[in-house]
Design a protein around this nucleic acid. Structure first.
Lengths: 218, 218
DNA sequence: TAATAAATTTAGGCTTACCTAAATATAAAT
DNA sequence: ATTTATATTTAGGTAAGCCTAAATTTATTA
């Protein structure tokens, strides 16, 4: 059983479990880009390795060991992203794929040295929190623009890392972490959100406004 | 055919071909830690991929494509070694294994950024030359201590990266790149070489003296 | 409640890179 | 030149992680 596959499965299961309470076969298959049958195979093997609990037809849930591994991978991924931006002049839209590869060949020692070189950062370039070495994930409180009300204001503290294209667009619009914005209008008709930022009015699509978070407790 | 195996075979073949003119099956097997039968299998596949020429019983020799790949891997390995030392406080005896893993997940872009961040270095932390992006390997001229004569003197420009233990010992003795030394005696009895360095006399075993090189043209 | 749809598992296969042991080729030594 | 030793190849097998299609289970809808 090889490193990369195991780690990718565990990461995906972790994400699905966070979102849906359990990682169903088909969702996993879609996320990993493999067939459903392959997932069933692999999930059984990971269950044998005590990384997850598997009940046929009920999906998978990580064991404490599995969760520990998942958080370790998330930590490595986000540390690498931060490192690439800080030391190698990557932009926030360029780091995801590189980190995806690097995370699988990162020793304990390398992880520690990167952490130290960065001054023990708490978040990655997209504002996602970096789990501690002990596997603790402190989540900051924030609210997506689509959940905000008109005249809410705050500072962008997190942006979804789902699409480089979207991140590039934000850069172009002058929006980044720590940018101060205000909700100026919510368009019922199409679900857009219009924000003001330094005097300018910027309209954001529904998807976009779900991807941007400001520091207002939910 | 996966990345890592292909790259490891090509690297090993490159090294053997440099040393012996050809990469014989058994040597390759020993270097890679696999059985001879496995090597024959794999070498045939690499031959199909036009990375090497293979004549049964005669060993393998890289094609231009194969050599290009080999030098690319050597370049990435040595850039990573330099990077780990320069940016992450690794010692020269700690970098080999990390680089061995990192080199296989290094994109073109990452390679370039590391190169730039380091200021386009010419050698790695052990004094091994770093091939250019175009695959050119400029080898510096040097001579191993065992090939030197009494009263030869110069500066250490390269040290074999074969054993972390040996590198640690050198550090302990105060010997590193750019250290100035002089051959003070060659002991016929056991093949030792005695050097002077900053007034101190330091005896070096035959193996050790084959692993240290100073800047005297051969 | 029975029929239908959707999700999941099972079964049989493929490829890659490895293994071991037997067969064969080459090289060395008598 | 023939034997002996060494190197190499061949042949048959294995484990991982994937695939597809058939069988089964679960969920939904009539």
């Amino acid at each position: 059983m090889d490193n990369k596959s195991t780690e990718d499965y565990i990461k995906s299961i972790y994400r699905l479990e966070q979102d849906n309470g359990t990682a169903l076969t088909t969702s996993l298959a879609r996320l990993l880009g493999v067939g459903a049958g392959s997932v069933t195979d692999m999930v059984k093997k990971l269950s044998d390795k005590r990384l997850l609990h598997y009940e046929p037809y009920q999906g998978a849930k990580l064991t404490p060991d599995g969760k520990r591994l998942a958080l370790k991978m998330v930590r490595r991924h986000r540390l690498w992203e931060m490192f690439l931006v800080t030391f190698l002049n990557y932009k926030w839209d360029e780091v995801h794929d590189e980190a995806e590869r690097l995370e699988h060949v990162t020793s304990e020692g390398l992880e520690q040295r990167i952490d130290k070189a960065l001054g023990y950062p708490k978040v990655d370039p997209h504002g996602d929190p970096i789990p501690t070495a002990e596997g603790e994930l402190i989540d900051v409180s924030y609210k997506s623009l689509s959940d905000c009300n008109v005249s809410d204001e705050g500072v962008i503290v997190r942006v979804s890392d789902d699409s480089p294209e979207m991140l590039q667009l934000l850069t172009k619009l002058g929006l980044g972490l720590n940018t101060k914005i205000r909700i100026s209008q919510k368009v019922k008709y199409d679900g857009s959100v219009i924000i003001t930022m330094g005097g300018r009015e910027i309209p954001l699509s529904p998807v976009m406004s779900k991807s941007i978070f400001i520091n207002i407790p939910e």
